[in-house]
Amino acid sequence: MKNVLKIVLFAVLMVSCKQKIVPADVAKLNGYWEIEKVDLADGADKNYKLNENFDYFEMKGNQGFRKKVKPQLDGTFIANDTYENVKVRFEKEKVFLDSSTDFAKWTEELVTLTDDELVIKNDENKVYHYKKTEAINLTGNGEKTK
Rank of each mutant, 00 (worst) to 15 (best):
K144Y: 04
V38S: 11
L97I: 02
Y32A: 09
E58Y: 02
F65H: 12
H129D: 08
K49A: 13
N125C: 04
Q72E: 02
C17L: 14
A44C: 01
Q63F: 01
L118D: 11
R66V: 00
G31L: 10
L97N: 07
M59K: 03
L138S: 12
T139Y: 08
S99L: 15
L50Q: 06
D123E: 15
G31A: 08
V38P: 05
K20L: 07
D123R: 06
V69I: 13
G140R: 11
M14K: 00
V69P: 10
V69K: 02
G61I: 05
Y130E: 11
T112D: 12
S99T: 06
E124D: 13
A11P: 03
A104W: 09
T114H: 05
S99I: 03
G61S: 10
K46H: 05
Y56Q: 13
L113P: 09
V119L: 08
K126H: 12
I21S: 03
W106G: 10
E84I: 01
T133D: 01
A41G: 00
H129A: 04
P71M: 03
R66H: 03
F77C: 08
K67S: 10
K60N: 15
T82I: 02
F57L: 01
K121C: 08
N53C: 03
E58A: 10
N3V: 09
T82A: 10
K94S: 14
E134N: 13
N47Q: 03
N125K: 14
L97P: 10
N30M: 02
R89I: 14
Q63H: 10
A135S: 15
N141L: 12
E91K: 13
N62T: 14
N53D: 08
E58D: 13
M14Q: 10
D81K: 05
Q72N: 15
Y128R: 04
P71E: 00
D115V: 09
D55T: 06
K37W: 05
E36S: 06
E143I: 05
F57W: 04
I7F: 12
E108M: 09
Q72D: 01
L50G: 00
G31Y: 01
E93A: 11
K126T: 06
D42M: 00
K105N: 14
G43V: 04
N85G: 07
K49W: 00
F54V: 12
A104E: 15
I78T: 11
A44P: 00
K68G: 05
V8C: 08
G64C: 09
N62Y: 00
K126F: 12
T139R: 11
T112I: 15
M1C: 06
K105D: 13
I21K: 01
D45F: 13
V22W: 00
E143T: 09
A79R: 02
L29D: 10
V86T: 12
N47G: 00
E124G: 06
K132T: 10
V119T: 14
V111I: 15
K46D: 07
V69A: 07
W33N: 06
N80K: 03
L40S: 07
E52A: 09
G61T: 09
V26G: 01
A11L: 15
G43R: 03
K2N: 12
D123A: 12
W106P: 08
D74A: 08
D116S: 13
N122C: 09
F90W: 06
